[in-house]
Amino acid sequence: MTARRSTPWSRMWLAIGFAFLYLPMLVLVLYSFNESRLVTVWAGFSTRWYAALWQDRQIIDAALLSLRIALLAASAATLLGTLAGIALARFGRFPGRGLFGAMITAPLVMPEVITGLSLLLLFVSLAQLVGWPEHRGALTIWIAHVTFCTAYVTVIVAGRLGELDPALEEAAQDLGATPLRAFLSVTLPILSPALLAGWLLAFTLSLDDLVIASFVTGPGASTLPIVVFSSVRLGVSPKINALATILIVAVTLAAVLALWLAGRQAARRRAGAMPAAM
């Protein structure tokens, strides 16, 4: 591979790209510490909006509901997505594979309004036909989130499985492991970083969803995005700036942590490595 290097031109594009991506969020974070009620006019440093946020029962309840749904949805989606990923990457051709593949790919690009509407109509029709689900709320949001998150997890898992040397599982079987044991003791541990990545992605997708949840929710079940949306529809608000800052900081910390863990693992590998010559 030829040496990679930065040219002035590529540095310029990196600067433009990252300025575009990060300046809006930076401004948001900065003005969350603004004393003034007028969001865009600086009137001195203050943390009063964080205190106000803490007092806001509606937002706190919504955040807790969102977290609960996201935890459960990400876990279920990881389970379903792992199974689906194995089926797609390992089982070759089976009846219905084309349909299966399409149902995995379509949710990735399906406009949310369509997914949301179709699921709501399903729940309403099922309630009429079989009396389930009786109420719409956390349960129906969870089902909706599991459905579209499964597609994302499947893509990640199937991709990682596709890169794996198929000889690994064969070697395990050759050494006396049953196919199931070979999967559990060899493939699954190697797959675990991909599973974690899939879970995290599903978690953030669920936490972030507004449109689908708006369709399938029922009375009393307002997730955080639903509450935030009804607030920002009326215009900018310093309290939302504070909430946004908390979200941004949390995600950044998680990312830095993940990067640090990955870096440490790589460093540990390098430290023990010898020159390739024997």
Partner: peptide, 20 residues
């Protein structure tokens, strides 16, 4: 007999060493 029941062991071309 399935592979895990055969008294036969194989060294794979890629070695297939378990990376973890």
């Amino acid at each position: 007999l399935p592979p895990h029941r055969r008294p036969v062991n194989m060294m794979f071309q890629s070695y297939a060493l378990f990376p973890h």
